[in-house]
Amino acid sequence: MRNRFGSAAAIALMTTVGAVLLSACGPDNSDPGSTAAPGTAAPGTAAPGGGSHSGSPAPGGKEINGTSAANHLAISTGTKTVAMNGTTVDFGTVVRDLAWSPDGKKVVFVNGDGDLVTANPDGSGKSSLAKAPSGETWSHPTWQHASKGPGGDSVPNETEHFNNIVFASSKDGALQLETIPAKGGTPEVLTPRSSEGGTDNGIPQPPTTGNTWPNAGGHQGSIAYANTPGNEVYIYDDYIRPNTHDIGKGSQPALSPDGGHVVFVRSVNGHDHLFSRSTDYEQKTEKDLTPSATTDYTEPAWSPDGKTLAARTPDGVSTLPADGSAAPTQVSTIKGLPSYRP
């Protein structure tokens, strides 16, 4: 698959020469506060547990920035500043692959040293979750979380089991998923597995290496991720019992807020398109959301209400209806990784 900002590229771009883990964050390291800055943007609804954001208005206003308090969009570009709420927030450290906590009150990212860090949305309260070992590159953290049951009961396997940061790790060219408690601790390898597989019934287990680009969604701790060697997208669910299933060819998956759909990237006729399908293994129908694409749409993100998608393009960030009912519209010239605050 010809994917300009593919999973392997996103992992590789974070180290110095020849390892640019930051494809998801902006390979050009442009500052969203400068007039030459590249960009992103997308819609949503009012953020619960809001709070003020520090920062100065982005020069050029909406034409340059494209973010606002109303649309919940944030754009991280691999610099110290993140575009959000129509301003640029200075985090005081390089911010790569920024992602949000389920309540929107915290962010998690990889800093300039390659370590996992959490912070408040205004850049304050930074806390190091873990330091990357020498020779190991971390990328694309996501907040795995599960809500309590309908009656307020704890979820299976205890709620603590589903309050983690899952991220991709690369060492000596080997890719794998790792997980760490959101409150900090020691990272452990996350091995996707299926209770339906194994030697007893002849069904093979999913690949344990080559996995990258994790993205959590829904209320039961589900994770979508990409397997680079196979160019496949998988859904991993460990809510009641381990279950991993193959969604199909693609990369850079993003789970919807309700966990019911997954959007991913696939090359079609020389351009990267966005595809969508149900996460239900039995419902295999796919939809090309960008059938008339004349550019590449990559690194998709869902709005909090699940109605809108933001995607990175070579010219910035575009948004489109999640059902594909309209063509994408460019909303920002800032080139970076789009994310939505819940």
Rank of each mutant, 00 (worst) to 15 (best):
R2T: 13
G6H: 05
A8P: 06
A10P: 11
T16D: 15
V20E: 10
A24D: 09
A24W: 04
N29D: 13
G33C: 06
S34H: 09
A46S: 13
A47H: 04
A47F: 01
G50K: 04
G51A: 10
H53V: 15
H53S: 14
S54I: 08
S56D: 15
A58W: 09
P59E: 11
G66N: 04
S68L: 07
H72L: 12
G78A: 13
A83I: 03
A83G: 08
G86S: 13
T88F: 11
V95T: 01
A99K: 13
W100H: 06
V108H: 00
F109W: 03
V110M: 10
G112M: 07
S124N: 06
G125W: 04
S134T: 14
E136W: 03
W143Q: 02
A146G: 06
E160M: 09
N163Q: 06
N164D: 10
F167R: 03
G173P: 10
A174F: 08
P181M: 14
G185A: 09
T186Q: 13
T186E: 14
E188D: 07
P192C: 01
G197A: 15
G197C: 13
P204G: 11
Q205K: 06
P206I: 04
W213C: 13
G217Y: 07
G218P: 03
G221R: 07
I223N: 01
N227Y: 05
G230N: 13
D238V: 07
Y239P: 11
T244M: 11
G248M: 07
G248P: 08
P253R: 07
L255C: 02
L255F: 07
L255S: 00
S256H: 03
G259P: 03
G260F: 01
G270K: 08
D272S: 15
H273I: 00
R277P: 14
T279G: 07
E282G: 07
Q283V: 12
K284A: 13
E286T: 09
D288E: 02
L289A: 04
T294F: 06
Y297I: 02
P314I: 02
S318M: 02
L320V: 01
P321L: 03
D323G: 06
D323N: 04
V331S: 09
S332P: 05
T333G: 05
T333Y: 02
P338T: 01
R341F: 01
P342M: 05
